[in-house]
Simulated scan of single mutants.
Amino acid sequence: MDKLKVTYEVMLGLAAEMVWDECIRKHRREELYKGIDSALANGDKMAFTELTDELKSLE
């Protein structure tokens, strides 16, 4: 029974880590979209290129 409990706790930890990673990725994606919008509004081609490249690598 202890082995089952340890396995369950490990699986819960992995699930929590997956949720946390997805939250961080979603937050970064939102920041990138805001930065891309700002770069477009300001005509900053370099920032636009860097941010879109990062967004592509994120997805």
Rank of each mutant, 00 (worst) to 15 (best):
L4A: 15
K26H: 10
I36E: 01
L58M: 06
F48N: 01
E59R: 06
F48V: 02
V19G: 05
E50T: 04
K3C: 06
G13Q: 08
D44W: 00
E9K: 10
D37L: 01
A16M: 13
W20T: 12
K26F: 08
K3T: 11
E31R: 01
K5I: 15
Y8K: 14
V19C: 07
K26T: 14
T52V: 05
I36H: 01
L14H: 10
M18V: 14
R29W: 04
N42F: 08
V10F: 07
M46D: 12
F48E: 03
M1Y: 13
E59S: 07
C23M: 14
Y33R: 03
R28A: 04
W20F: 14
D44R: 00
H27W: 10
A16I: 10
V10E: 08
V10H: 07
A47E: 04
A16L: 15
H27F: 12
A15F: 06
L12R: 15
T52E: 02
T49E: 10
K34C: 01
K45M: 05
E54G: 02
M18L: 15
M46C: 07
L32F: 01
D21I: 08
L14E: 14
M11S: 11
R25W: 06
E17N: 14
L32V: 00
M18Q: 15
Y8W: 11
K26A: 15
E59Q: 06
D53S: 07
T7H: 11
K5H: 11
L40H: 05
K26D: 11
W20S: 14
